[in-house]
Design a protein around this nucleic acid. Structure first.
Length: 103
DNA sequence: CGATTGACCGCTA
DNA sequence: TTAGCGGCCAATC
């Protein structure tokens, strides 16, 4: 259920914005399950259908991607998100989408 | 069933 | 402040 839950919450992230693995982990109730989240997205049963490419690292870097970081970068750019040459997301703190850990 | 990996994170030096 | 290391959670071998 972990994977589906992660994907479900991930679907709440609007285009043009990005979230972090840690943020998703906290959203699912597993603050330290950032790796597990990344792993869940790695399996990604629904490519493209789920905005898995909008998930970046807490450092602001695009992180990795199952189909290649370059592809992920292209998708982000396609949504209006700029990526630094180093792989860092521009205005990361501004476009960062948080789930606000309600409750 | 047990151990290791993995699209990671946060702390310590 | 930057670099290095262990720790965690879940899934896979």
């Amino acid at each position: 259920m972990f994977r589906e839950l992660v994907l479900k919450i991930l679907s709440a992230v609007p285009a043009g914005r990005v979230t972090t693995y840690a943020a998703l982990a906290r959203a699912v109730g597993r603050p330290g399950a950032a790796r597990a989240v990344g792993n869940a997205l790695h399996q990604n049963p629904l490519p493209i259908v789920v905005p898995c490419h909008r998930v970046v690292r807490s450092d602001g870097f695009i992180g990795g991607y199952r189909f290649g970081t370059r592809r992920k970068k292209a998708l982000l750019v396609g949504e209006g998100i700029r990526i630094e040459s180093s792989g860092q997301v521009e205005n990361f703190s501004q476009i960062l989408f948080t789930f606000e850990s309600k409750n």
